[in-house]
Structure formats: C-alpha cells, structure tokens
Nucleic acid binder design. Structure first.
Length: 431
DNA sequence: TCTGGGGTCCTAGGACCC
DNA sequence: TCTGGGGTCCTAGGACCC
C-alpha cells in the first residue's frame, strides 16, 4: 500500500505555526508581488475567498472579516517542508517528496510485518504520523492510503473533505475503491485538467468509475499514454512507481514580475542580472552547467491605456547557445545581456524580464567545443566562493555589478512574515 | 493601483540517415 | 506502367502538476 501525505493549506499553516494568534482566524497567503491568493485557511475558504483570486478583488471581504494577509515567505515554507518530510522519514524508510507539501510513503514494510489480516493497522499508523507531524511542526496533514499512487490521491482528497475521516482515509478492498470512484468527479483526478475534463464530459464521462471503464484504445488515442496509465492506476494496477531519488532538473527558470511597469533598458538589465544570479545559484547547487541561455520579456496583458483600451502589447525571446556549458554568473550574464539588447524595444511598459537556463549537463562531464576550451577553472572557484559568502551573510551580499542597487522594480512583499527558522535575527522569542 | 512562478511529459510532423 | 523500408533527432504546441 502507498500513503499520500498532503499538508492542509500548507502556506497558511506555516504562517500559523509560529503565530498561534492566527488560530481560528481567516488567513491567506499571496503569490509573488502580492498579486493573487495562493493559500487559504479553512476560515478563509468558508467566507468565499477563491483560489488564485486577485487580491484587489477581495479588499472588502478582507476588511469585513479581519482576514490576515501574508506575502509569500518561501524561505519559511521551504524549511517547514523539510521538517515535515524529515518527520515522515522517522516512520517510513521510502519517502518520495512529490512537492513542497506532499509526499508518497511506501507502506509495504509494515504490511509484511502485520500480514494480510489486519489492514486497519495502517490507519492507526497514519493517525500516529499525523499526530507527530502536528506536534513537531504544528502543520496539519491529511493521509490517503491505497494500492496505487492515483488511488492514494483519491483517498487523500476524501480524507481532507470528510470530517468523519479524522484526516485519514484508506481504500483497501475492491468494494471501498468502487464506491469511492463512483462518487468521484473526473475534474479532481490527478492528471485530468480542465481541457480533458471538458473533453470527457462531452463523451458523457463524469465519474472516476466511468473513466476507469473507458476502452484502452480510446484513452490512448485521445488522452495519450498518460490517460491510459491513469485508468490502469484506478483499476488497481500500479503504473507510477515511487521515485526516491529526485532527478536533476532539465531547465531552471527565474522570471518574477516587476512591482511596477518598467520601460527603460537600464532597469531591465539590472533585473535580468539579478534573476540570472538566482537561476545560476540553483544551477550550481545541483552541480549542473547550462549550454543555452534564453531571455524573454513581456508587457502586462491586463494593462489599460488612459483611454481605457488595452495597452499595446509586445513579447519576445531569444536563445543563445554557449560556446561551452557554463555555471558562472559572470559568463552567463554576458550572453543574457546581449540577448536582452537584441529583443528590447523602446516605447513599451514591461511586466517582466525572465531567464531560462537549459541544456543542463553535469559540471564534471562537460564536453569542450571543437574550437573552444572549457571555461577558466578560476571562474568556477569564484562562483563557489561567492555562493558560500552569500549563504552565510545573506542573498546578494556579493553580487554582479550589473545587478545594481536600485530595487524599486523588485516584487512587492508588503506583508512578509519573519524567517523564523533560518535567520538568527528573526527567531521567535518566548517571554 | 492591483491579475504568480516554476516545472514535466507527450505527440505529430518535418528533416535527416542508410 | 513502375517510385522501399526502417530508423533517429529536433521542435512547437499542448496538456498537465503544485
């Protein structure tokens, strides 16, 4: 059996973890730039705040219900996630960290111990896991248990919404699975988005049970091999195995929006250098070098001109193949800036400039070009030293000159909480 | 005033190879 | 009149995930 542990309202729960005064209050967390709602406590959902809703649309609701609003604090959420995952690792050897707030657990070690006659013991175990995570992190979780990952997802969805479950739901017998799928909307299935939902509804398919009975050929032809795998998983045949080693990323992207419209090349250039510094830090952290740099930019598709019409739009991108794979901020920025100059047009107000590093290869397996050498080893040492300094003393303490010191374009974070767990200066004091 | 960011996988079709 | 068979690689576009 496979367990899926999913943190409830994760970002909102993280904010609560170190601030008990928020218990029982509606709490929301906003996207980068304080734009949209990306997490809601149960109380916030109850008063009708929708996922991904722009925050300016719910000003009155926030006022009326004293909603506590937070900017995204990824430093805190990332660290809290690591704590939750480490807690899960105390119970089960094989944990697949699937996302910042979800993990699959392999329960087969327990099943071998207890044999087949006592399936309910997994529910008891899951309750223990739940209680321990709550005690150690103050993060509430729901746990679904079933024979396949997809069915565990279904079980988890039910565990979250049915108060009678107490946060744990197991689908073990054929009858339990059958009954759960018969009442389960295809729109909630893992791997069925809004396009496929519409397509399937036109075919008269509404429930997961109906989906599991669609002929294989139709699924293969219309929903690709993934749609077919989904059906197999619903029928109880595992097609998605636990991935215990997280594979290296194939592309790394950094493209946060500006806090305000930006029209000048100098500011765009500083923002690009800053995004590139973020992306190349990630690149070095996973031990990769990039062989291609892509720069892209776009205007704001919602922006209106003074006369009320949509402002004129422009977006473009350019990719540069490097003479050799590189992980040096200095070198990557050199090519990125050239690409920016090539696509930048005066007369527009831009919403963002972004960078994508791709063609990633392991740094120690780089192949030199036929007519070029590998980059100077000193560049790699320099990057490593800069990363160490910044890790210890704070982001961008040592930076590319091209990044500049003007941060007026940087994203809004009006309601940022403290980094309780990762900065000595922001640690919580108990009176 | 104000509308997110960062990823993965699959497929069809075109170009190419012997 | 008659024009093969079996492949690989790349890309754009579309779908999905959290």
């Amino acid at each position: 059996m496979i367990g899926l542990v999913d943190c409830n309202n994760f970002y909102a729960s993280c904010e609560r973890s170190f601030n008990p005064a928020l218990d029982g209050k509606p709490v929301i967390v906003l996207s980068n730039n304080d734009g949209n709602v990306v997490a809601r406590s149960a109380e916030a959902k109850a008063i009708g705040i929708k996922m991904a809703q722009p925050v300016f649309q719910i000003r009155e609701l926030i006022e009326a219900h004293d909603v506590r609003v937070f900017s995204s604090n990824y430093t805190l959420y990332g660290d809290m996630s690591a704590r939750v995952m480490a807690t899960l690792g105390r119970f089960v050897e094989d944990v697949e960290v699937y996302s910042i707030d979800e993990a699959f657990l392999d329960f087969s070690c327990y099943e071998r111990q207890i044999g087949r006659e006592e399936p309910a013991d997994l529910v008891t175990l899951a309750r223990q896991i739940r209680a321990t995570v709550a005690q150690w992190t103050r993060i509430p979780v729901s746990i679904g248990i079933a024979p396949t990952k997809t069915l565990a997802k279904v079980a988890n969805w039910l565990a979250k919404r049915d108060p009678a479950c107490g946060g744990v739901r197991m689908l073990a017998t054929e009858e339990q699975i059958h009954q759960a799928l018969a009442g389960f909307d295809i729109a909630e299935l893992w791997g069925i988005g809004h396009r496929y939902t519409a397509r399937l509804r036109r075919e008269g398919v509404r429930t997961a049970l109906q989906y599991s009975r669609i002929p294989d050929d139709w699924l293969r032809d219309n929903l690709t091999v993934n749609g077919l795998r989904l059906a197999y998983e619903l029928r109880g045949t595992p097609c998605r195995l636990l991935e215990l080693e997280s594979p290296a990323k194939k592309a790394i992207c950094a493209a946060p929006s500006f806090s305000r419209p930006v029209g000048d090349l100098a500011t765009m250039s500083q923002a690009l250098a800053t995004h590139l510094a973020r992306a190349s830090e990630k690149l070095r952290k996973q031990g990769s070098a990039a062989s291609c740099v892509t720069v892209f930019l776009n205007t704001n598709r919602f922006r209106k001109s003074p006369n009320g019409e949509l402002a004129k739009q422009y977006s473009n991108s350019q990719s540069v193949l490097l003479p050799h794979p590189s992980a040096s901020s200095l070198e990557l920025n050199h090519y990125a800036q050239a690409a920016l100059k090539a696509i930048f047009r005066f007369g527009y107000f831009y919403q963002k400039v972004g960078v994508l590093l791709s063609g990633l290869v392991p740094t120690d397996h780089r192949q030199p070009g036929l007519f070029t050498d590998l980059p100077d080893e000193r560049l790699a040492k320099l990057s490593a030293a800069v990363d160490r300094v910044n890790q210890r003393h704070g982001r961008d303490r040592v930076r590319l000159a091209a990044q500049g010191y003007d941060r007026t374009w940087a994203m809004r974070q009006e309601w940022l909480s403290r980094r309780y767990t990762t900065r000595w200066g922001e640690i919580l004091f108990a009176k």
